[in-house]
């Protein structure tokens, strides 16, 4: 039957790489560039949806291979936009928040985790449980860890500012030693953070304002050393007449 035979001609696919060639032809191809950071050179990729990848890599060819494996599309070398270079080099959190990110590889939950991590200011840290609570999934602490480990744009979305609450900094997508380097570079007193964490100290309070915070909250840094109190639990802080900080939101509302 001719009509049936004709219908088989419908089962045709465009040649391999067709979409990529069209996008390149109109100038919408994905680009990447090498950027120097406190933890060495990293490759940054971007496209019309925003910044899509931040990857340390031993060589350009290794980066191209890893990028293609993870994102299933090629990227071509380009010139890094000046704003992007400035944000990466300064590590400015407010500027990083204004950038657009291509998080299409992330699930809805992963995206919520990463968007929340983006709110953490430079030089400060938040526990995994804090993110879980802030995005309305207080029990999903482990899942927060997995989502951060898969962060396609580390450094820019600062998953290195998310730490364990027991006084250890925890894992990092780009390596645990790199996490220490980055946080020290941002001015966090890592030794003190670890010492206090091991001693069970969870919050700092200001005797003048009667407000308690997460230890790295910028509000606490303004308090004079002699006015800083330490607490091991929310109950201890509240019993002493302190209320939670509205900026770092140290406990559930």
């Amino acid at each position: 039957m001719l009509q049936t035979e004709l219908r088989t001609l419908r089962q045709v696919r465009a040649p391999e790489g067709f979409a990529g060639r069209v996008l390149a032809a109109v100038g919408l191809v994905e680009r990447y560039a090498l950027v120097e950071t406190p933890i060495g050179g990293v490759y940054v990729a971007w496209n019309e949806h925003g910044i899509s990848a931040v990857m340390p890599s031993a060589s350009e060819s290794a980066f191209r291979r890893r990028f293609a494996e993870r994102f299933e599309r090629p990227a071509e070398r380009g010139e890094l936009p000046a704003t992007l270079r400035r944000v990466i080099e300064s590590g400015d959190a407010a500027e990083a928040r204004r950038l657009r990110y291509d998080l299409r590889v992330c699930s809805e939950f992963e995206t919520a985790v990463l968007r929340k991590a983006l709110e953490i200011p430079r030089g400060q840290v938040r526990p995994y449980g804090w993110i879980a609570r802030e995005i309305g999934r207080p029990k999903a602490v482990r899942a927060v860890g997995s989502a951060l480990a898969k962060n396609p744009v580390p450094l820019l979305i600062p998953c290195h500012r998310v730490v364990r609450s027991d006084g250890t900094l925890g894992e990092y997508a780009l390596g645990a030693p790199q996490k220490v380097t980055l946080l020290k570079g941002e001015g966090l007193d890592v030794a003190r953070f670890e010492r206090e964490g091991r001693a069970g100290i969870r919050f700092h309070g200001s005797a003048t304002t009667k407000i308690f915070c997460l230890p790295s909250c910028s509000d606490m840094r303004r308090a004079k050393a002699q006015n800083v109190r330490t607490f091991r639990s929310e109950g201890e802080a509240r019993d002493a007449g302190y209320r939670p900080c509205k900026h770092c939101r140290p406990v559930a509302a």
Binding site: L9, R10, V12, R13, A14, P15, F18, A19, V22, L23, V26, L28, E48, H49
Partner: peptide, 17 residues
């Protein structure tokens, strides 16, 4: 710009065929 890729992936095979 953000959605052109979707146009190509949705209709690339059809237009080629």
């Amino acid at each position: 710009d953000a959605n052109f890729e979707r146009l190509v992936t949705t209709y690339g095979d059809r237009v080629f065929a």
